[in-house]
Nucleic acid binder design. Structure first.
Lengths: 253, 253
DNA sequence: GCAAAAGTGTTCGAACTACACCCATGA
DNA sequence: TCATGGGTGTAGTTCGAACACTTTTGC
């Protein structure tokens, strides 16, 4: 928790270095133990959780800003990021404002303004992330999609819009390279799809379809140690994967 | 063309009523005589064209701002609008700034700042639009997609991103209700798709596919007066159309 | 009657669905 | 040896691509 003095300094600096009225919020998806996770922060002294976010430096491209913000929260450098919507309701940051409004006069208070927030979603490898709280949180951690906390501000809307976008993009983009470890089994990848879509898929049809995309390399090894028949390991064929990202998976029209 | 005095007043007012650093640019698509059109404005005294745009009032939702901006440029009230991307390069409004930078001191000059622009695309019925120039343009008119002028700033990028988005959305959204007149023939609708996609489609397959979506009503009448066999008229089944907009056309996974 | 546009099939193959069977492993 | 998970195969169906024939209309 920051002291009033520290807040004062933070705000004074913020107004100097950041663009006014513009913020960035990120929905960071990870995948662990067959569950989809989202990175969240818990407010100081309050049971309200929010998404990693921040502001844009005066001369910084917004993509760089999102990168920088997530680098601090996760420790990861080149994160897969996708802009998905702008949240621009005039009242969307009202609660946030209220929290800090009375602590400083309006002129010095960077938070006491309307923010247009640019939403990014990110896909990351769970194990590479080192969740790191910011100045306004006592905790930064993964939350299971099936066990979400109380959201601050409009962050539930931002989260749900991100998830909807991700589900939609599943239809014309390959997904997984950023969420899975280097090597993985087909059932593991299927579980990722099932978790994102929140429904069961047929083992055999899933395999055929995914393989049909031509974005996987089948490796010689199998994953030993499981309680049953050892599944084959796969890795992504990065070249084809990138191509599929650009061209899309189906032509449609 | 505004005088220096008028500019001074405009800027003084702008800083008072608009959010800093945030702008909106709109790509307005229309369809006329088998050609896709985009609404553009021609700069005063310069062969540089730009997209309809504007700023966000201090307490206005961004969607409302886009509505308001387009209402003034087109005369249409409830336009079909779709946010598609934010353009946030720090140098993106540089040229614009240069144009007006020297006319007023920095503090008074609303334009002499970095703008994060929210991109919307709009689909409108060509015949309902009354193109109306703004204070910085001598002309507001439709431009054919096959005959585009020189763009100002990053407006070519904005336009192309909008078109790409539209093409992508064609795969999972019905399109046409906002671009076609109330009644239309199948060949006319096909022409719309062909124009957006910039490629020929098979008559028969197109008809089967579109009808399969269940978003059309076949009318009794035919379009008389043509030089050949009279085609049937169709209208959109608005209920099914709206449903398709929400649910998407194909499930995919 | 002829050219051009529009209505209406049909065929073929690819792709998706829904299944069934076999194999490997640990308990 | 058996329950469980994983690899692989197949029949039926649907969907889209390619293509042909007929009908209407103005000249």
């Amino acid at each position: 928790m920051l002291t009033k003095q520290e807040l004062e300094e933070f705000w004074a600096e913020a107004s100097e270095i950041y663009l006014n009225h513009v913020s960035i919020d990120c929905v960071v998806f990870g995948f662990h133990e067959g569950q989809m996770k989202v990175l969240m922060l818990k407010s100081n002294n309050e049971e309200a959780w929010y998404l990693p976010g921040g502001f844009v430096l005066k001369k910084e491209p917004i993509e760089k800003a999102a990168d920088r913000i997530l680098k601090v929260r996760t420790g990861i450098d080149k994160i897969f990021l996708q802009q998905f919507r702008v949240f621009g309701d005039p009242d969307r940051s009202k609660i946030h404002n209220d929290m800090y409004r009375d602590m400083l006069p309006k002129e010095q208070n960077f938070f006491d303004q309307r923010f247009i927030s640019i939403g990014y979603y990110a896909l990351v490898d769970f194990f590479n992330v080192t969740p790191t709280p910011d100045d306004f949180s006592e905790l930064c951690t993964w939350r299971d999609l099936n066990d979400l906390p109380k959201f601050q501000l409009d962050h539930r809307l931002i989260f749900e819009t991100a998830l909807d976008t991700l589900r939609l993009q599943l239809n014309y983009q390959p997904i997984g390279y950023n969420l899975m470890p280097k090597e993985f089994t087909m059932p593991e990848l299927q579980k990722l799809y099932e978790t994102i879509l929140d429904k069961k898929l047929d083992r055999r049809n899933f395999q055929r379809r995914i393989l049909g995309f031509g974005i996987l390399n089948k490796l010689e090894q199998t994953r030993k140690g499981g309680a049953h028949k050892a599944p084959y390991l796969y890795s992504f064929n990065l070249e084809n994967y990138q191509a599929a990202l650009k061209e899309g998976l189906k032509s449609g029209w």
